[in-house]
Design a protein around this nucleic acid. Sequence first.
RNA 1: GCGCCCUUCGUCUAUCGGUUAGGACGACAGCCUUUCACGUUGUAAAGACGGGUUCGAUUCCCGUAGGGCGCGCCA
Length: 473
Amino acid sequence: MSSPVVTRFAPSPTGYLHIGGGRTALFNWAYARKTGGKMLLRIEDTDRERSTAAAIDAIIEGLTWLGLDWAGEPVSQYGRAVRHREVAELLLAQGKAYRCYCSPQDLEEMRARAEAEKRPIRYDGTWRDRDPSEAPAGVKPAIRFKAPQVGETVIDDAVQGRVVIPNKDLDDLIILRSDGNPTYNLSVVVDDHDMGVTHIIRGVDHLTNAARQTQIYMAMGWRVPHMSHIPLIHGPDGAKLSKRHGALGVEAYRAMGYLPEAMRNYLARLGWSHGDDEIFSTDQMVEWFNLESIGKSAARFDFAKLENLNGHYIRHTPDDMLLTQFIDFLPHAEGGKALLAHIDEAMMAKLMRAMPGLKERAKTLVELMKSTAYLFAQRPLAMDEKAQQIIKDGGAEALKGVLPVLTQVENWIAHDLETAVKSHAEAQGLKLGKLAQPLRAALTGTSTSPGIFDVLEVLGREESLARLGDQAA
RNA sequence: GCGCCCUUCGUCUAUCGGUUAGGACGACAGCCUUUCACGUUGUAAAGACGGGUUCGAUUCCCGUAGGGCGCGCCA
């Protein structure tokens, strides 16, 4: 029996929770659930300049919206700085780290020179073996990790396989800044160790860090956690995800009207697969999830597929649940708050009745919201010229013209009309061309199909219908 | 420049040496429908290139090309 799995999601609060981070969190969460372990949340806020409380809120809200939860309170990495410093000092005392008196300018020059001479950009080890007595006065040193210079560091990665990195390509990284604050690579190792993390699942952009961190683990004599470096998500053009593409915060996806379950399903399929299965519940995903089935190559974000999936989830969500989700969505939607103000019991009832027609053709909640515009509109509705002309012309032709016009105004009504007409026609043995009967029935209240009265209200001209009826009959 | 990783239809992917290379999204066409959508049927669409290994390679190895990531007193 091995120890229970502990995963962690460790974002830095320097901005919104982007979609790649959301997927990383999903994988960590899914793996923890699958194995009966737990996922921890750690906020990597050691960069005091860029970390913000707003970003922390955004991350937590984003995860919550995605339906991902974690064990215990979020851990602030910055709050553990004392311990990180302690480890840095320990490394220093053991001769596994040393003080470096190079100034940032020195280092910049070093880099510039290396670049100019087309040499690898690395710290040259100036202070690695220099006698501390040579230290310039008044300069606060940074502490560098004394990384092995020969041999190689191996990362046994569940996704990437066995990755071997020559130690000569890894330089002595700073673990403690000259101002006494720890840096990322040190903090991560100390925290993951102290927090009992058994499995690290993160983006491949951390692969090189994994090597450096492995060296620190070894220097401390700590056990190296299982690693899984998952491929990154690219934009539609194959390049890095930019804001133009999908590098938006997860809250942007919420505002675009995507359902959390659709997002989970889509994100899971991006890089991970279970045979030919495309649409699966989150429970199903958890049951199937495994690290081995995660691919190694980067995947492009495809909004068309997300939309399709989202449409599927919208259609398959029970009306009442969808209505709840819709209401919850409104505050986050552009123009949604204005609608929210008009929602009372009567409106809820209307929305509920309209939902079957509404959800049939909405791929996102935004589309669904747009389709409800009719319900919120002032009566009587203004008709465009085309509609007016059609009415003016009257006659049997009018009916043909009316439907498309209605479509423009409000698809779902047309849907109701169509359904009502069809059923009436069938019930009364009428040919579909003869619509007068069912329409009259609707007008007199014989039909209970919601939307019919609204339709007539839109038309606003019972005479036209009557005329149509005469001709059609 | 150096290191690491990747490469199957336009996109996401299946395939664990032998398949007519499968599915999904998208596209196109038909059906359903007096709108749109849903649904449904079908079509087109892929192993980057070059060498090996093997009776046999998409699958294993090497090289080339292309792409990605990393190389901060950022995380």
